[in-house]
């Protein structure tokens, strides 16, 4: 899932300063797993803003709307009628949503209400952990299902470095050394010899492309060369 987190209220208030009619736009039931940007979150933020405005002796009209997905054009256009006098939109979605809304409604000020943290898994309620950097060239088929691009701070492909002690990475207490785990798993599978070969340097174009990455299904990934 895309793991997102609400921005502090102060930052959002700064964005909308001077506007008397805004739209708080949520993103619901995301199939990619954003869990905090739905209807409830929209209601909560709207209330927080209103309360703050009352404290400050100011008035503001806040429209609330939650769409199925902010990252698909067909859903986004449904707000056309809603935004007539709206001067600012605060989105409660991942970065994809806020960018797409800002692209389409470029005459309106569009602000992020969320920080997009990472692509991760939810281990228990409220506990998320990063699992993928979307580097565009998955190598976990060679590393026993463990991604060194995501989980090794130094992105090592010929690890582990000298900072691995008792299976733990030197960079942060409690962070398992992914190369220690890879070796353990491959050894158990009798496939340790795979790590005898020197792993060539990564072609980072699959991550950085030329500018942004695009996928046109009929053409394949359009981000290299």
């Amino acid at each position: 899932m895309i793991v997102i987190k609400r921005k502090p209220l102060e930052e959002i208030l700064n964005y909308i300063e001077g506007h008397n009619k805004i739209l708080v736009l949520g993103c619901q039931e995301c199939p990619y797993g954003c869990v905090t940007g739905g209807e409830e979150a929209v209601k909560k933020l709207a209330e927080e803003i209103k309360n703050k405005m009352i404290d400050l002796g100011k008035s503001i009209e806040i429209l609330e709307k939650t769409l199925i997905r902010l990252c698909e054009l067909r859903y986004v256009k449904s707000i056309n009628d809603l935004i007539k006098d709206v001067k600012a939109i605060v989105t409660l979605s991942c970065g994809v949503g806020v960018n797409l809304i800002a692209d389409i409604y470029f005459e309106i000020e569009v602000y992020p209400g969320m920080n997009t943290l990472f692509l991760g898994a939810e281990l228990r309620e409220g506990i998320f952990i990063e699992k993928c950097r979307a580097c565009g060239d998955c190598i976990v088929g060679y590393t026993a299902g463990l991604c060194p691009i995501t989980r090794c701070p130094k992105n090592m492909l010929n690890g582990p470095c000298g900072g691995c002690k008792n299976g733990v990475c030197e960079v942060r207490k409690g962070l398992p050394c992914v190369w220690y785990q890879i070796i353990k798993r491959l050894k158990k599978r009798g496939k340790l010899e795979k790590l005898m070969e020197i792993w060539e340097a990564k072609d980072w174009r699959s991550l950085y492309g030329k500018g942004i990455r695009e996928l046109r299904e009929e053409l394949g990934v359009e981000n290299k060369n």
Partner: peptide
Amino acid sequence: LTGDYVTFGDHPQAKPVFDLDSIQLIS
């Protein structure tokens, strides 16, 4: 060398590069 990770140092906000690792650097 691969090098110590940036957060150990005096500019922990820096973007870590690590385009290569030490073995690729030797090559």
